[in-house]
Design a protein around this nucleic acid. Structure first.
Lengths: 231, 231
DNA sequence: GCGCGCATTTGATTTTGATCAAAGCGAAGC
DNA sequence: GCTTCGCTTTGATCAAAATCAAATGCGCGC
């Protein structure tokens, strides 16, 4: 039996829309793999040997300078595609932020298969175009926004992704969620230092805009205020 | 006669590899258009109505905040593809930096045509993946590099694209080129202010790393030094 | 050739966020 | 329950780049 049949991202990942025969062939090429938090799956500037679908967990894409400065250039969530197809080298590292499960393929197998399946390539193209849009709007944040604008933008994006707004239609819906990032990782995502991130969080808490039930949890108390701060 | 036949980017743009019949169909859908320096072709957050190949000239892709801060999120050169296929809205503006010629298509015509021509979609995918790589490495610059590192990175990239290195094999090949950017545009590209850009240029000139024959021209005198500054 | 307007450069000062340093806190193990 | 370690917060100071302001000079039209 194909493990694709029971895959939780079956209908959201790029494999969606493949028929049973195609899925069987893809299944034969790939294998599931567990990655523990902190473990690397792909290394910057290494040969691009594998690509994967994220089934579960959160991973970061990073680039680093020689002297150790790091910038998170992307974040991959379940159903996202990671790795560099059709290219010799991978330009960023991929590291698990939480324990994760991925469905990996040898890159050359995947490339060959994709070229024979235009529908799959089309899905990959749509995803890549959307990711490029997201990346470009993050460039605006990194190039032109202040620390507090960066934090507000980040928190709203997290709230939209993870927040469970109460069912009652209230004016400023509070939303509570767990961050998959440490303070340092938030800094690496926003192009700030850990101290600046911490101070901005403290300020928003003091102003009653957010609550911080624990280190990894955030509660958006005043969404409007946060939206007004995004710049 | 198809104007594609005489197109100077015929063998480099995504149309490369199409056979005569396909080219004829594509040609029937598109039309050439001249854009003068400063003129907009696409507006941020507008419906995505057109896509295009750049034939001649340089264009900037930008996003702006409400209060007028601008970030250049991409630069398009001859043979590059611009616009947002397969999407409802365009997330950045496209404005000509120099007088330019483009080959434009109605987006929905292009989308339909592309879906019927996997080879074309594949070329677009390869281009989009490469652009995503470039964009991500620019994120590192915006998030983590200092002003002088940004300037050095920028100048080397410009030198590689525009510079004509002398034929004699010398140790530190000098390379001279004209910038398609004003100081303000360089600032918008690097996430800096015009004053900072100007001061960094002046410093590099004083240090003998570059020459500035005119406002729009740069001569790289000491490539090694510049490389050492990229961070 | 001359003056005009605008982009650029230069200078003074301020601000933001980084850096350096120390204290606080919470989860895991003993 | 207590200790420990690492993450986070807080505080003090510093530095880089932004801002504010003025001068310069280049290219263009007359």
């Amino acid at each position: 039996m194909s493990s694709c049949e029971t895959c939780v991202v079956r209908n959201r990942a790029i494999c969606a829309g493949l028929d049973n025969r195609e899925l069987l062939a893809l299944n034969a090429m790939g294998r599931r793999r567990s990655v523990t938090a902190g473990e690397s799956l792909i290394w910057e500037d290494d040969d691009s040997l594998l690509v994967a679908n994220v089934i579960e967990g959160v991973l970061k894409l990073t680039t680093s300078t020689e002297d150790g400065r790091e910038q998170i250039v992307g974040v991959a969530y379940p159903s996202d595609f990671i790795g560099r197809p059709f290219g010799q080298t991978s330009r960023s590292s991929v590291v698990a932020l939480t324990d994760a499960k991925v469905c990996v393929f040898a890159r050359n197998d995947f490339d060959r298969y994709a070229r024979e399946h235009p529908e799959l390539e089309h899905k990959l193209l749509e995803r890549t175009l959307a990711e490029l849009d997201r990346t470009r709007s993050w460039m605006m944040l990194l190039g032109r926004k202040t620390a507090s604008e960066r934090i507000a933008t980040f928190l709203l994006e997290m709230a939209d992704r993870f927040g469970e707004t109460g069912c009652a239609p209230v004016l400023s819906p509070a939303s509570r969620f767990a961050l998959p990032f440490s303070r340092q990782q938030i800094a690496d995502l926003l192009g700030l230092t850990i101290e600046t991130v911490s101070r901005q969080f403290t300020r928003l808490k003091q102003d009653g805009v957010i609550g911080l039930p624990s280190r990894r949890e955030v509660e958006v108390l005043d969404r409007r205020a946060l939206e007004a701060l995004t710049g």
